[in-house]
Design a protein around this nucleic acid. Structure first.
Lengths: 213, 213
DNA sequence: TAGATTGTTAATCGATTAACAATC
DNA sequence: TAGATTGTTAATCGATTAACAATC
C-alpha cells in the first residue's frame, strides 16, 4: 500500500479531509467516486486529488474511478486509524469534558483510556465513558500502561512542565489545547498544537478584508 | 501601513503566530527584535520573516531590527484586532462554556456580546461575563445588534441550517466548531472551520511514522 | 468496442531561500 | 565610522495544474 517515503506535509494535511468525506460516502452506501466528483465537492482539482492518492500507490481503476470502500480503508491504513492507538487526557475542565463527552476519539484512531485532574470534585467521576483519576497517579499510570499520546487540556501555566514529564515517562505524541506553543520535535515527539486564537485572528483578518472592499 | 493587496494565505496564517510571540515580547518589556532572533525562536528563516513583514510595508529599521511595540501594533492593525468587532456564541454546552470561561476573545479582536442556547437550565446564567439567552431570540437579536461573527458550538446536525439563518440575518463570518464543513465563501462570508478530528488524525499519522522508523 | 477515468510526466505557478546593496 | 540588519531582487525549490497515454 505505502509507496513514497517522504509525503509532503501539504498532502498529509489534506488526508483527514478526504477521509471525512469519503467515510461519509461509505456511510451513504456509495460504491464509487471519481477524482472529478471529489474535486468538485472539496473545492480542489481532480489532478491534485489523483496526485495525492498516488503518493501511497494508486487504489483507483482507469475508466471507473475509486472504490469507496477500498479508498476508505486505504486512508485508514495510511493515517494509521486502524491501529488502536491509546490516549489519556489531562485536565478535566470544560474543554476536557467537551472532548470526553462529545469527541469521537475512535474515529480518529485512538482509544481514550482515562482522564486525570487535580480537583477532588471530579476525581472518580465519569465523562463519556472515561473515569477521572487523581493527577498524582498520572506518571505511574503512563509508565505502566504506555498510552501513545496525551491530550493536554490544562491551564497554560503548567503546560510546559507537564509536557516534559509526559514525554520522559514515554508518551509519544501530544495533542495540545493549552494555547502554549510546545516544540518537542527535537525529542522526536510530534505535537499538534490547537490554537483557537490563531484561527479566530485569521477570521478577523478575513472579515476585515471583505469590509474593506 | 498596508501595502500589497493580495497577501497569500500562507502569509496570513503565519501572522497570528508572529503576533502571539511578539506580544509576549512586549509583555516582557523587550524593546527590539531582529528577524534572525524571531526566526530562531519560531523555527523559520529570517528571510521569510522579512518577506512576510514586507507584504504590509516595512516597519523595520536597517542595522537595528524591529521595534517590538511598533511591530505589535502593526500586526494588530493588519489583522484588524483593534477594530472591536463583535461576536455572539450559539450553543452553551461544554465546549461553548469552555470558550466563554477561558478564551480571551478580546485578544483575538472580538467583543463577545452574549450567548444563546435552547436549554432552559442554562438560559439566564452567566459564563465568563456573557449572559445566555433563549435561542428563539437569536435572529431578532442578530438583526438588531449586528454582531460581526457567530461562534458555532452546537451539535453538528443543526449546523447547516443555523449557519444559513445567521448569514441571512447579516452575520459576516463564522467560527465553526461543529465538525461539519461549512462553505459560504460563495456568499462572501468567511468561515473558519475548526476540525478537531483533522488535527488528531494528523497526529496519529505522525506517531505512526515515527513508530515505523 | 467506445467512453471514462486513472496514473504519470511535463509545464506552470507560487512560495521559500539566498544574496547583497541600502542604510541605520 | 564600522557593524548590523533591513528591504528587495534573483535563484531555488516545491507544490499545483495540465495534458495525455494507458487501460479498465
Amino acid at each position: 500500500m505505502e509507496k513514497k517515503q517522504n509525503v509532503s506535509r501539504a498532502v498529509i494535511q489534506r488526508l483527514p479531509r478526504y477521509y471525512r468525506y469519503i467515510s461519509a460516502l461509505r456511510a451513504q452506501g456509495e460504491q464509487r467516486v471519481s477524482s472529478r466528483k471529489l474535486a468538485e465537492t472539496l473545492g480542489l482539482t481532480a489532478s491534485q486529488i489523483r496526485q495525492d492518492f498516488n503518493c501511497f500507490g494508486g487504489f483507483g481503476q482507469q475508466g471507473y474511478g475509486y472504490n469507496v470502500e477500498k479508498l476508505c480503508e486505504g486512508l485508514e491504513e495510511i493515517l494509521g486509524l486502524n491501529r488502536r492507538h491509546t490516549a489519556v487526557l489531562v485536565g478535566v475542565g470544560n474543554l476536557g469534558r467537551a472532548l470526553l463527552k462529545n469527541f469521537n476519539f475512535e474515529a480518529s484512531g485512538f482509544k481514550l483510556l482515562c482522564a486525570f485532574d487535580a480537583d477532588k470534585m471530579v476525581i472518580g467521576h465519569e465523562f463519556g465513558g472515561a473515569t477521572v483519576r487523581d493527577v498524582s497517579e498520572l506518571y505511574p499510570y503512563v509508565s505502566e500502561h504506555k498510552p501513545d499520546i496525551a491530550v493536554l487540556t490544562v491551564p497554560h501555566s503548567i503546560a510546559p512542565d507537564l509536557a516534559r514529564g509526559l514525554v520522559q515517562h514515554g508518551v509519544r505524541g501530544l495533542w495540545n489545547f493549552t494555547g502554549v506553543d510546545l516544540h518537542l520535535d527535537n525529542l522526536g515527539v510530534p505535537v499538534e498544537n490547537v490554537h483557537f486564537s490563531d484561527s479566530l485572528m485569521t477570521l478577523c483578518y478575513q472579515v476585515n478584508q471583505i469590509e474593506a472592499e
